[in-house]
């Protein structure tokens, strides 16, 4: 085990822990219900997840597009059908891989 790898892991890991636990411990964002901070925090969840969808799909736009279309449609279709995050996720990955295998 190289010292620099371990050192980097510890420093970044400690920062991650501080980012995840620190604001809860400090009770950040607690205030008047309906206030600006409350609305900011309520919108953070949808904003974060939408951002991660776009950020993870963007790099795939330049390569094979048919598998991407198939994967996205499978996730949407399975979600509408069963309302299951597990099924939609797995079905999307299977559809992507299958269309990729067919040369899409």
């Amino acid at each position: 085990m190289r010292v620099e790898v371990l050192a980097l892991a510890v420093v970044v890991g400690l920062a991650n822990y501080a980012f995840r636990y620190g604001p809860i411990a400090a009770r950040l964002g607690e205030g008047r219900a309906g206030g600006a901070m409350a609305r900011f925090l309520a919108a953070t969840g949808p904003a974060a997840i939408a951002t991660l969808v776009v950020a993870s799909v963007l790099p795939m736009m330049g390569t094979a597009r048919l598998p991407l279309v198939a994967g996205v449609l499978a996730v949407l279709g399975l979600w509408v059908w069963r309302r299951s995050v597990v099924l939609a996720t797995l079905g999307g990955a299977v559809a992507y891989g299958a269309v990729f295998a067919l040369g899409g």
Binding site: P46, I49, A50, L52, V53, S56, V57, M60, A64, P67, L68, G71, V72, A74, V75, L76, W79, R83, V85, A88, T89, L90, G92, A93, V94, Y96, G97, A98, F100, A101
Partner: peptide, 20 residues
């Protein structure tokens, strides 16, 4: 193809979470 499908697992999960 397996590698490609696995590579789509995270975008699929984020999209499903967004729908939820």
């Amino acid at each position: 193809a397996v590698e490609a499908g696995l590579g789509f697992m995270l975008p699929a999960l984020f999209l499903a979470l967004l729908l939820s």
